[in-house]
C-alpha cells in the first residue's frame, strides 16, 4: 500500500472514534428533526432559487453541509494533536515525507467529510426526498462537498500550525466554528437576514457551500451559481496554499 494511503488510513482511524462520529452525526440529526420541525409552525414555506421550500427541507440540506465543516475541522486538527502528543515527529522519522503526511491529512479530511455527509444525508433523506432530488444533483453536490472539505480542512491545518496551547486552540476552534456556522446560509437564507449579517455571510465559505450544495441537490435555479462556485473554489485554493505554506514552516 502506498505510504500516503497508509497515513490516510491512520489519520482516518485515529480521528474517527465512536464519540467523534456520534458528535458529527447527532448534531445535524438534531438540527433536522428537532429544530427543523419545531420551527415549521412559525416559519412558512419560502422561495429559494425560484422554488418554494419548507423550512425542514431547507435546513436538512444545510445540515448535510454542516457536517463538512464539523468533520473537516475534526480531521484537520489531527496535526495539532500529532504535534502535541509527539506523533508528528515520530511519523517524520518513519518511512514518510512531509508532503505525504500533509496529503494524508487532506485526503482523510475529504474521506471523513464525505462519509459523515453521506450518513447525514441518509438521516436527512426522509425530509430531503420531499425537495425533488436528482441523481445529477447528487453527484454535483458530492463534488462541492469535496471542495468544501478541503477548505475547512485547510482552516483546521492553519489553526493547528498557528496555535500551540490547548486553551487558545480550543477557544479559536469553537469561535471560528460558531462564527462560520451561524453567519452562513445553513440555518436561514442570508438574503433575508439584516444587512450586516448578510455582508458577513458573503465572505463566509460555508454560505457558498450550503447554497451550491442545496441548489445542486434540490435542482434549484440560482443565477449566481457560477459566481458562487468560483468564490468557493477560489477560497478553497487560497486557504489550501496558505495551509501548505504554513505547514512547511513547522519546526521540529
Amino acid at each position: 500500500m502506498h505510504s500516503i494511503l497508509r497515513l490516510t488510513l491512520r489519520a482516518f482511524i485515529s480521528s474517527l472514534d465512536k464519540a467523534t462520529l456520534f458528535f458529527i452525526l447527532v448534531f445535524p440529526a438534531f438540527f433536522i428533526f428537532v429544530m427543523g420541525f419545531a420551527f415549521t409552525g412559525i416559519i412558512p414555506d419560502f422561495i429559494v432559487g425560484g422554488a418554494k421550500l419548507s423550512y425542514p427541507v431547507f435546513l436538512a440540506s444545510g445540515a448535510v453541509t454542516f457536517t463538512v465543516i464539523n468533520s473537516g475541522m475534526t480531521v484537520g486538527v489531527i496535526i495539532w494533536f500529532d504535534r502535541k502528543y509527539g506523533m508528528y515527529e515520530q511519523i517524520l522519522m518513519g518511512p514518510f515525507r512531509r508532503y505525504e503526511y500533509l496529503a494524508s491529512i487532506i485526503l482523510a479530511t475529504i474521506l471523513v467529510s464525505l462519509l459523515s455527509a453521506g450518513l447525514a444525508f441518509l438521516i436527512a433523506l426522509p425530509v430531503l426526498i420531499q425537495g425533488g432530488l436528482t441523481f445529477q444533483g447528487f453527484l454535483y453536490a458530492g463534488l462541492v462537498l469535496i471542495v468544501g472539505s478541503v477548505l475547512f480542512g485547510s482552516i483546521a491545518i492553519i489553526l493547528s500550525v498557528r496555535l500551540r496551547s490547548s486553551e487558545s486552540f480550543q477557544v479559536f476552534n469553537s469561535f471560528i466554528f460558531f462564527i462560520i456556522l451561524f453567519t452562513s446560509s445553513v440555518f436561514y437564507p442570508t438574503e433575508y437576514a439584516p444587512q450586516p449579517i448578510h455582508i458577513i455571510s458573503l465572505v463566509n465559505p460555508l454560505t457558498y457551500l450550503a447554497d451550491i450544495f442545496r441548489a445542486g441537490l434540490l435542482g434549484l435555479a440560482d443565477p449566481m451559481l457560477f459566481l458562487k462556485i468560483s468564490v468557493l473554489a477560489g477560497e478553497s485554493l487560497i486557504l489550501l496554499i496558505l495551509a501548505v505554506l504554513m505547514f512547511n514552516r513547522i519546526r521540529v
Binding site: 472514534d17 494533536f81 502528543y85 509527539g86 506523533m87 515520530q90 522519522m93
Partner: peptide, 20 residues
Amino acid sequence: DEVRKRIGVVQQQESYELNL
C-alpha cells in the same frame, strides 16, 4: 528516505495517539 526506512526511533518525548 533510505535511512528512515531502516531505522526505529523511541523518542525522549512522549508520542502516542490519544484516542487509540
